[in-house]
Amino acid sequence: MGVTFAHKSDRSLPQPRAVLTLIKPITWFPPVWAYLCGVVSSGVPVTAAPVAVLLGMVLAGPVVCGMSQAANDWCDRHVDAINEPDRPIPSGAIPGRWGLWIALAMSLLALALGTVLGPWGFGATVFGVAAAWAYSAEPVRLKRSGVLGPGLVGLCYEGLPWFTGAAVLSAGAPSGPVILVALLYAAGAHGIMTLNDFKALKGDRLTGVRSLPVVLGPERAARVACVVMAVPQVVVVGLLMAWDLPFHAGVIAVMLMAQGAAMRVLMRDPKGRAPWYNGTGVMLYVGGMMVAAFALRGMGG
């Protein structure tokens, strides 16, 4: 690809700070939050299984999500050399093949911890680890697709942790309403992930990643992302009304209207305002997730 890495030093070991940067703690919040939504929606008191709750949070965030970030950075090192040359791998702060070894070691750690959460927790962990590598690594590399890539990430960031939290606390398969609402919020997260792709627009174009911002252009991609985020929430509001939960439905509807106002601001400059929207509209989105989780708890999970 004609990309060279501008190593800042001839290190043989990774810088500890660079390892923390590699696994991106800022990205741990969504899966941890979704896991807690699953815990709440199960209807089982947290005090009934505090170890499972804490372990699940660690597994969903620092371990599985952190591993996925390390795997993605390793597989994207040539793209990052264009978009973010100061990232740990292209900058040389994590030298040689250390990025790969860290991702593989964390994959094994995730599988080991998953066994502690029982068959449902372990099964979900296996799926999450496999999905992380399928997203980033050749020859599968689903991130090349602007449809499949964000869809898989949305599923693993929101739907899978929610399902896992509910299953672990219930010691069995979650109820139909819990699975349905988790899937709806996972589908809406496709739009969040599309907005996240704006920051890699230049490198994606040069390296053949067909993200929606590359394929459709920033304005159309942002419009699609807004629709994809909004429609599942409208369905959730309708379901809660049908389940005779008007208060929770009303709270989510108000949050959705606030997102609509933020979306109008986003559309004035989609590429420039995407990071701003991730700090405003997305917080309203995940807030609605917890409201829905409490609603499901009220109907017995």
Rank of each mutant, 00 (worst) to 15 (best):
A182C: 08
A34K: 07
A137M: 15
P174L: 10
C65Q: 14
A52C: 02
A249Q: 05
G165W: 04
V58F: 10
V251R: 05
S91F: 09
R210K: 11
L55S: 06
I26C: 00
V265H: 10
A187L: 14
P246M: 01
L100Y: 09
G61F: 03
W98M: 05
A230Q: 05
T47C: 00
V228P: 04
N196C: 08
P85V: 14
P50F: 02
G298L: 05
A132C: 13
L111H: 00
D197I: 02
L239N: 02
T280A: 13
A295T: 07
W101G: 05
V40M: 03
S175D: 14
R97Q: 12
A261G: 01
L13E: 14
S41K: 00
Y135F: 14
A242H: 08
F5N: 04
P30M: 05
L148T: 09
N278W: 00
P161H: 05
V254L: 14
V51I: 09
L108G: 08
A253L: 14
H7K: 15
R268H: 04
V116G: 00
I192C: 07
V178S: 09
Y185N: 00
G114C: 04
K202I: 11
L152A: 03
D73T: 07
L296H: 06
T125R: 01
L59R: 10
G208A: 07
G288S: 07
L201I: 15
L239Y: 02
S41D: 00
F127P: 03
G2E: 04
P30N: 06
L240V: 07
L54C: 05
D86E: 14
L111K: 00
